[in-house]
Computed example of a mutant assay.
Amino acid sequence: MSATVRRSPVPRPVTLCNDRRKVDAYARLAHLTAITTPVLFVLPGPRREYGLHHALGAPQVPVQTLLPVPQPDLAAATELARQFITAYGSYRYDQPAEAYLARLRPITSDELYQRLARSAHNSAVLATRQREQTIVVANARVIRIHDLQANAIILLVSGHQQTLHANQ
């Protein structure tokens, strides 16, 4: 009695002269099937790795495909961060705390909103703003992604406030 053993194909290392041809073939396959397939190159050493990088040039991989979140979600998070810093940093001495908080409500969680509400009603801060007739206009821009995880996007946002005093 004999048994037939079927072996799954084992990836073979490719030689440098075949590398470019293989990469082009995978690119055509991805284009035709709309399926992106990771390609693993097993290289014997750093010289060969350098040669492969040199032969391939800059990667043709769109950066968005490497992100753990879809690009529209990243864009929305970026805009939300910019809006929050702008709204949080802008206020007027003659504006009630409720009007200030109304701008923040749609872009904050319940927990953050409650903390902001407590600080927005701080009588000492409100009295100082009223006495100095302070008007502050903020703007913000996202500088870069600081950290990106499957469930968190941490952005570095730069805020700038222009302070005016109505009584001057």
Rank of each mutant, 00 (worst) to 15 (best):
D24E: 15
Q60H: 13
R12E: 12
T36G: 11
T36M: 00
L16I: 04
A81E: 11
H54V: 11
E98S: 09
P68T: 13
T86G: 02
H31S: 10
G57N: 01
L56A: 08
G89A: 08
L16R: 04
P13Q: 08
F84D: 04
R82S: 01
T65V: 14
A102H: 05
S90T: 12
A30H: 06
V23Q: 09
L16Y: 06
P13G: 14
R82Y: 02
Y100H: 15
G45P: 03
L104W: 04
L52K: 09
L52E: 10
P72D: 13
F41K: 06
L32R: 14
V61S: 11
V69Y: 04
T65D: 15
P59W: 07
G89F: 02
A27G: 01
Q71K: 10
C17A: 13
P11L: 05
L29V: 08
R82C: 06
R82N: 05
L67W: 15
F41D: 13
A34Y: 07
P38Y: 02
E49L: 15
A99E: 01
G45M: 05
A75R: 15
T33Q: 08
R48F: 08
G57L: 00
Q71P: 01
G57I: 06
P96N: 00
R21I: 12
G51R: 15
L74D: 07
D24G: 14
L43M: 15
K22G: 06
P38N: 03
Y50W: 11
V39W: 01
T37P: 02
L56I: 10
C17H: 13
I35K: 12
A55F: 06
L101Q: 03
P44E: 14
F41L: 15
L16Q: 01
L104T: 04
A102K: 03
V63W: 15
A102F: 01
P59Q: 11
L101N: 03
A34G: 11
A87V: 01
V39R: 02
D94G: 01
A77P: 03
H54W: 08
V63N: 13
T65N: 10
A77W: 00
V23I: 15
L80T: 08
L104P: 05
L29N: 04
V10L: 12
E79G: 11
V63P: 10
A27W: 09
A97P: 00
Y93C: 02
A25G: 03
G51Y: 07
A30Q: 09
F41G: 15
T86S: 07
P38M: 02
A87H: 07
S90V: 04
L16A: 08
Q95T: 03
Q60F: 08
P72V: 05
L40F: 03
D73K: 05
V69P: 01
Q95W: 02
